[in-house]
C-alpha cells in the first residue's frame, strides 16, 4: 500500500523525505563499500532490484484487488540484509511511481520510509530474534515476512494519521481509522505473504 502522489501535505512530504535521505545515503555507502571489494556486486544489486520490482508488482492469488505488496522487500532483507534493501527499495518505489502510477514522487520519501526502511528492518530483526529464540526456519521466515509486511502498513497508517488527524479524536483516532480500513486488505495479504515467503525460502534451500 503506497501513499499516492500529492496526498500528503507539503511539510509532511518534505519531513519524510528528509527522514529517509540519511538511510538511503547509508545504504548507498554500505553498498559502495561492498562494491570496492566485489565489483561484480553492482550487477547483482541491479538484478535484485529488478526482481524486487517484479515481485512488488505481482498480484497474490488469495487477495483480489490488491494492487501491490512488499514481497520482494521481506525476502530481500533476509537474503541481502536490510542495508542493501534501502537503495533497492528506493529504486522499486521510484519505478512503481514512474511505471505503474503507484505511489508518487512527492510521497516517495514517506513510502521509502515505510517500505524500504521500516519493513526490511523489522523483517530482519524479527528473523534474527526468532532464530535466537530457537524457532525453526519456517516459523522464523513466516514471522519475519508477515510482521515486516504489517509493520509497513502500520507505518503508512501512522503517516496518514499524522498528516490528517481526526478533528475529534486526534492522531490516535485517525490512526485507528486508517489502520482499520486498510487492515481489511493488509491482514490477509500479510499472512499470504508470510506463507509464500516460507514456500519460496524452503524451495530455494533445495537448489
Amino acid at each position: 500500500m503506497h501513499i499516492m502522489e500529492g496526498f500528503l501535505p507539503f511539510k509532511h512530504a518534505l519531513a519524510w523525505t528528509v527522514a529517509s535521505a540519511p538511510f538511503l545515503a547509508w545504504g548507498l555507502a554500505s553498498a559502495g563499500r561492498r562494491l570496492r571489494a566485489h565489483p561484480d556486486h553492482r550487477m547483482l544489486l541491479g538484478v535484485s532490484a529488478a526482481f524486487a520490482f517484479l515481485l512488488s508488482a505481482l498480484k497474490l492469488p488469495s487477495v483480489t484487488g490488491s494492487c501491490s505488496h512488499p514481497t520482494g522487500v521481506g525476502l530481500g532483507a533476509l537474503l541481502f540484509g536490510p542495508a542493501a534493501m534501502v537503495p533497492v527499495g528506493f529504486v522499486v518505489l521510484l519505478f512503481q511511481a514512474l511505471l505503474l502510477a503507484h505511489g508518487g514522487l512527492t510521497t516517495l520519501g514517506a513510502n521509502v520510509f515505510s517500505m524500504a526502511i521500516v519493513g526490511p528492518f523489522v523483517a530482519y530483526g524479527v528473523f534474527r530474534l526468532a532464530c535466537l529464540l530457537g524457532l525453526g526456519r519456517s516459523p522464523a521466515v513466516f514471522l519475519a515476512a508477515c510482521l515486516g509486511d504489517l509493520a509497513t502498513y502500520v507505518t503508512t497508517s501512522l503517516q496518514l494519521a499524522l498528516a490528517f488527524p481526526d478533528p475529534v479524536g486526534g492522531v490516535l483516532l485517525s490512526f485507528e481509522k486508517f489502520a482499520g480500513i486498510f487492515a481489511l486488505t493488509q491482514l490477509p495479504l500479510a499472512i499470504t505473504e508470510g506463507l509464500l515467503t516460507v514456500l519460496v525460502v524452503n524451495a530455494m534451500a533445495q537448489f
Binding site: 547483482l44 505481482l58 537448489f207
Partner: peptide
C-alpha cells in the same frame, strides 16, 4: 497457485546470481 508461484519465485531468485555474473 500459491505453490506454483513459490516455485517460480524461488527458481528465479536462484537465477539472479547467474544472470548477474
Amino acid at each position: 497457485a500459491l505453490r506454483s508461484m513459490a516455485a517460480l519465485i524461488s527458481c528465479m531468485a536462484v537465477q539472479v546470481w547467474a544472470r548477474a555474473s
